[in-house]
Design a binder for these strands. Structure first.
Lengths: 347, 347
DNA sequence: ATATATTCCGCAACCGATTGCGCAACTTTT
DNA sequence: AAAAGTTGCGCAATCGGTTGCGGAATATAT
């Protein structure tokens, strides 16, 4: 049953007033007497009136809608990021509409257009892995819809971006390990076409250069297909018997690497130390807990949402480039090789 | 810059036609000549026209919008469920709008109302843990908006529900362990106010009853705060030294339990076997991989979306109760105690 | 050449709510 | 008691499309 919705007109008929009056009464407009207001409100209640936002926002230029486009619903990071965004969005009386691009630029374009069709007030975008330029976002720019890119992005001077300080995180992770006497470290990185990967790798390289440590090709693992990881790890361990630590760039890579290390019988941290960049969830349920540079998905989400809403409210077109720093969380997956005895103190 | 959007009227002015003609031309209406159509399309293209869906759907009674309300963005299950929903939704030219209730019934009510304000064509709902009755959904029912409850739900004869066959899964898990000689099993369950928890526990109990196996109170762990888990586990192991297996009801509980078992030095499966109900992600990156009864989040999402869209299309008010069966995935975390030698074959 | 049928497009109402303007009725001022 | 000011509400335009109906221009039939 379609159950045709009650409209202002229906209430008007019922109460013998005009739709304009009903509208104002419901909106608590000062022009309407208190008496009428309560009468209207009661009638609306009784008839179970439901406002039609599509109609309302047809006149207004805003829709109170913020669109988020993510490449995939990864189990790591994305959920907490969405949670963060959602909180801020709801606090500011917006609604979040989530789209998934399936890592396809075609989809991404389609969704960006769709967001404009819905007249979203702003768009949050985590770029798909296929995306190498931002032309398809001009639709939004043309409509005057503010856009903020977060997490996975590419170089741009046009759009506001909010990212982890990826290069620094990569450098810090490697340095942390080096400080503890690890000189041969395997780095596990993602697809190099993504800025997040190349930057973290750059930092990793940088740390080696700073200390003039050699860095062999096989020490750097670039994972495009997760299936390749095992073979590449084996190759690295074969080529460099002195490997004492592994660094993984993301949670995804961490859990897989952790599993492969366990399978090959490497004890952590006795045989090999492990370190990651993570939001802290995966490290805390792996055993032993994994020392990592933490970036909170919630924080990234919240800050991004704040920034976007700021752009909407102030109609600002200014471009920002926000880098969020990571914090070190030591959890016992890294052995200190500078000290002769490496037994961990019992607590 | 607001950059006032191009409307049909603008194109009409530009081309010297009427808005009605523009609308029909863009919609490929047979009344319009091919020549005019191309002329209009070119003009629209040149002026970078963006249709306004709010206006379009103001007349139509449908919005092509499906709302999903989840209690939280759990890292397990929810992401894959959303992915499944999203795929079907997009395939059918709907858009998915995701809301998060933060496990609060107040939020849930608010969001249900909001969905009606947006005139969503359908609502998908994973109940919050606070929800004990479904009164707050009547808004939707009154508007004729079809609703489907999935995953976490409560008993209802009014709304369509799509769930895992929870009781059967609990029974099967326990039976599987018993078949392998485990007679003292610890079951780790969630909040008993949730149907999903009580049902899985019921199945667990049922399996014990079937074989007339004793089931002590401490064998059943009910986790409301994750912090309590460790103490309860310890108590169980102290009280029943013959515990040989642990069953966890969800991924969440699995990873925490796995971590606690590792910390207390229990080897899996030599010392204690481990089994779960899961969508298969967590079991595959824990070591050893965990044998589990698998329920695909994607499948749940897809089937639910299909059902809801069916309800929308056929304007059906019929209530369904769909149970999705789980499938056993053996991965080596369960030892067979019925055989004298328990060494696993090397591959 | 007149009548009938097509083709192609414009007119205008409509969806549901918002809002500027105007006006009657009532109150207050002089 | 007439003028001025308030109060409370209705009228009607408007947002941006969609669509039934009608009608002019052209093509086809008689």
């Amino acid at each position: 049953m379609p159950a045709n919705r009650v409209t202002l007109k229906d209430i008007a008929q019922q109460t013998g007033l005009s739709t304009g009056t009903i509208s104002r009464a419901l909106a608590d407009h000062p022009d309407i007497s208190t008496e009428t207001k309560t009468r209207v409100r009661d009638a609306a209640q009784a008839m179970s009136y439901i406002p039609n936002y599509r109609a309302r926002y047809l006149r207004a230029k805003h829709s109170q809608l913020i669109a988020l486009i993510v490449p995939e619903m990864n189990m790591f990071f994305v959920p907490s990021m969405i949670a963060g965004i959602n909180r801020v969005v709801q606090q500011n009386d917006y609604s979040l509409i989530v789209f998934q691009s399936d890592n396809s630029i075609v989809q991404e374009r389609r969704l960006a257009e769709y967001a404009s069709h819905l007249s979203a007030d702003g768009v949050l975008l985590v770029l798909s892995s296929e995306t190498s330029d931002l032309q398809h976002l001009e639709v939004l720019h043309d409509c005057g819809i503010p856009v903020a890119l977060l997490d996975r992005t590419i170089e741009t001077s046009k759009y506001t971006t909010i990212t982890i300080d990826d290069e620094e995180a990569g450098r810090e992770a490697a340095s942390y390990l080096m400080d503890r006497g690890h000189t041969r470290i395997v780095g596990v990185f993602g697809d190099q076409r993504q800025r997040i990967s190349s930057m973290r790798l750059r930092g990793f390289r940088h740390a080696h250069a700073e200390r003039s440590l050699p860095l062999g090709d096989s020490q750097i693992i670039r994972v495009t297909m997760m299936d390749d990881l095992e073979a590449q790890l084996e190759r690295a361990f074969n080529e460099y018997p002195d490997i004492s630590a592994v660094f993984t760039m993301t949670d995804d890579l961490l859990v897989h690497t952790h599993h492969l290390l366990a399978r090959r019988g490497s004890r952590i941290p006795e045989d090999v130390s492990l370190m990651a960049i993570s939001d802290g969830q995966a490290p805390s349920f792996l055993h032993p807990n994994v020392t990592h540079l933490r970036h909170s998905g919630i924080e990234v989400g919240e800050r991004t949402a704040h920034i976007l809403i700021g752009m909407i409210k102030h109609n600002s077109d200014a471009m920002m480039d926000v880098r969020i720093r990571t914090t070190l969380v030591e959890m016992g997956s890294v052995a200190d090789r500078t000290r002769p005895t490496k037994r961990r103190a019992a607590r």
